[in-house]
Structure formats: C-alpha cells, structure tokens
C-alpha cells in the first residue's frame, strides 16, 4: 500500500508540476534574469514542495499563492547569494499588466481579500511603481535606490509613504 500510495503521490506531483510550472517559472525567471539559473532555482523549488519544507495550510493562502511565494523567496535568495545587482536600468515592472489575464483569478482575489490593486492605483504613480517594482523584481530598499540612482533615504521615503497610504486604503476597505 505504501508503494501504491507513493506512486500515486508521484503522479499527483507531476500533475502539480503540470498545473503550476509556467507560473512558477515566470516568477523565478524574472527575478533571476537568467534561464539556466531560473531552471536550477525552479528545480530546487519543486524539491522543497515535495519535501514539504514549510507547510501549506488549506485556507490560509490559495495553493498557487503559497507556491509562488516559495518560488519568489528562493529566487531572491539565489540572487542575493550571487551578489548580483541588475546591470543597467531596470524595467520598473511596466511590462507587468495592471489587470489579471483571466476573470476567474480576479474573482477569487476579490472574494478573498480586499483589493490591493485597487489601492495601488490610488497612490502617486512614483510610489505605486516603486512598490510594484519591489514585488516583481524582488528588490530591497538598497537595490531600488541603486537602480533608480537616488539616495537610500529618498528611496525609503518614497516607498514608506506609499506603504502608509496603502495601509490607509486597505484599512478603509476592510
């Protein structure tokens, strides 16, 4: 029975990969910025998932959110271990669309939580852009300041005020 179960688990694992690898590869590829590195990180991510390092609790976060968070964190870890900073100007997440490609995930997001996206739109463009860039490119304050060529304190000030306004908006909606 153990063997049968193990075999079923592996089939389920492949199905999980089939359902999620495009999203997770998109996440790690953007942050790693290199196909080979992204592949290695993605390999690592699925091993983590298989070993259950970090428990998924049904209900706390949606499955894809939990998996994508693992992928983003691993990719950021990898990049920081390389001590690689992005060369040249960053693309400031402008290639990331403002709306979800499918209405279903939109509905899920709206039903489960108050809309962060709605609140981001209320920010000054510079603040919203900085927060999106921090998320999609996995940047710290120091990364962002360097990429933008502004003093660290200035970068912190922009983003902190953006976060404070975001908090107001989210609390208001809550």
């Amino acid at each position: 029975m153990l063997i049968a179960t193990g075999s079923e688990d592996r089939a389920a694992f492949r199905e999980l990969y089939h359902l999620t690898s495009a999203k997770l590869f998109g996440v790690v590829l953007r942050i790693c910025g290199d196909t080979q590195a992204a592949e290695d990180v993605l390999h690592d991510v699925y091993l983590i998932i298989w070993r259950r390092a970090g428990a998924w609790e049904p209900g706390r976060a949606s499955p894809i959110t939990w998996l994508a968070t693992i992928a983003r964190n691993r990719a950021i870890d990898w990049r920081r271990a390389q001590k690689v900073r992005r060369a040249g100007p960053i693309d400031d997440a402008s290639d990331i669309p403002d709306t979800a490609p499918d209405a279903e995930s939109e509905l899920v997001a709206a039903g489960e939580r108050h809309s962060l996206r709605h609140c981001l739109e209320e920010l000054e463009p510079r603040q919203g852009e900085a927060i999106r860039t921090a998320f999609f490119d996995g940047m710290t304050y120091a990364d962002y300041a360097e990429a933008r060529g502004v003093p660290l304190g200035t970068a912190k000030s922009w983003i902190r005020r953006g976060l404070a306004r975001l908090k107001e908006c989210l609390d208001r909606d809550a």
């Binding site: 495009a22 996440v27 590829l29 993605l42 959110t65």
Partner: peptide
C-alpha cells in the same frame, strides 16, 4: 495582500524535460 499581485505575474514555459530531472532527483 501582496500575494494578490501574483495573479498579474506573466507565465513562462518551463524548460522541457525539467520535470523528468526533478523526478529523478527525488
């Protein structure tokens, strides 16, 4: 909250054969 942004993250097709290499390493 921030995880809502994962919905917007563009997908990218994973390298071919990666699942087999992962499977082997298990």
């Amino acid at each position: 909250y921030f995880a809502q942004l994962f919905d917007l993250w563009p997908e990218a097709e994973a390298p071919e054969g990666l699942i087999d290499r992962i499977d082997e390493s298990l």
